[in-house]
Amino acid sequence: MSQTPPLDGGAFTAPSLVVRNLVKAYTPGIPVLKALNLTFDSRGLTAIIGPSGTGKSTFIRCINRLVEPTSGEILFKGQNLARLRGRALRHARRRIGMVFQEYNLVERLTVLENLLCGRLGYVPAWRAWLRRYPPADIAAAFALLEQVGLDSLAVQRADALSGGQRQRVGIARAMMQEPDLLLADEPTSSLDPKTSVEIMTLMADLGRRRGIPIIVNIHNVALAARFADRVIGLCRGEVVFDGPPRALSDEMLKSIYGGQDWLTASFQQT
């Protein structure tokens, strides 16, 4: 079912995720997302930018159903995610990795076990209870730890790590799922500028290496422009910009965020 995309890149553009008329209203009648229609290619990094409270987080959480969509379709691997329930939903979630702003690691478990948590969708519960993880998963966890540069911290507890290290663990955990899609909800918002760049680099690299699409919510426009192949501007629950980062003009940013006083200061970082 999961196609392996060609490694030369570029040419492969079959849509991997199609969102149709997605509406989410936390209070009936006041939609946060107003009938979004978006198509995502099966590779590349898409950055979603937009002011706070504009529905970026809601959108990304609708995809893996941490938030229940009010109406609309989310087509992924031939399934409508918006309709799935119970076991079918769990099985669909196994194919979608997610990276969080606050890392959301299990603080009192070791780094290694946090990575192994990425396999919980596949590992039977009794094995998780007894910590009898399959040897293949343990090997994969060590390999990933090496890739994210944390192999020396495998047996440290997650609460002993710095923010940047935690986010690396968060990314590695998502990668443990061997996902077909990676979602990231403000992955750099709690990190300093240097670490933010490192985290974005790591995520983009891993995504490219595995040939999977990444959707990142990010409010740092400079970072978005630097790493994204495509930028989507959301404003008040509607798509107001959709294109490559070089098409992001100051005019465009003004219409996404409103006002212009902030522009000189923040965008010159690039």
Partner: peptide, 9 residues
């Protein structure tokens, strides 16, 4: 939330 997103039972 993270574990639910992973698809853990």
């Amino acid at each position: 939330e993270a574990l639910r997103a992973i698809g853990a039972p």
